[in-house]
Structure formats: structure tokens, C-alpha cells
């Protein structure tokens, strides 16, 4: 279930890279930076959920309180 997340994040990275270079060509520097920020935020939302899942499971298995 997590494997498609890897592809999603890689896709977001490639798409933001392409959009960044296109917007830079058009001279919209600040829009390009916003695109990068949005990509990082979306990836972070997905990765944070995955990390929370991992920490919860480790806490249950290794009996950490």
C-alpha cells in the first residue's frame, strides 16, 4: 500500500521540476518558487502520514510508552 506512495512522490518531484523550468522561461520566478513550495507541502503531508503509521506500529510492537 505504501509502494504507490513512492511513485506518487517521484511524480510530484518530476512535475514540479518541469513546471519550475517552464515558469522560469516565462519569467515568473516567484510563481516557480510557489510551485516548489506546494510540491514539498503535498509530499510532506503524505510522508507525515506514513511516518505516523510507522511510529505507532513500532510503539505497539516494541512496547514503548
Amino acid at each position: 500500500m505504501g509502494v504507490d506512495l513512492i511513485f506518487k512522490i517521484a511524480g510530484i518531484g518530476i512535475i514540479t521540476a518541469v513546471l519550475h523550468s517552464i515558469l522560469k522561461e516565462f519569467g515568473k520566478e516567484e510563481m516557480a518558487h510557489l510551485i516548489t513550495l506546494a510540491g514539498v507541502a503535498v509530499c510532506l503531508l503524505m510522508v507525515i502520514g506514513l511516518l505516523a503509521d510507522l511510529f505507532e506500529r513500532i510503539r505497539v510492537i516494541f512496547q514503548l510508552h
Binding site: I6, A10, A17, H20, V40, C43, V47, L50, L54
Partner: peptide, 18 residues
Amino acid sequence: HKPEISIQLSIAAGVVIF
């Protein structure tokens, strides 16, 4: 192109394998 997203990708790969 995007080193900040590549870090998150490596975190995701590590978590999935674990």
C-alpha cells in the same frame, strides 16, 4: 532538480521497507 523532494522520497522508501 528537486533535492528537497528527493529527501522525502528516501524517507518514504525506508518506511515502506520497514
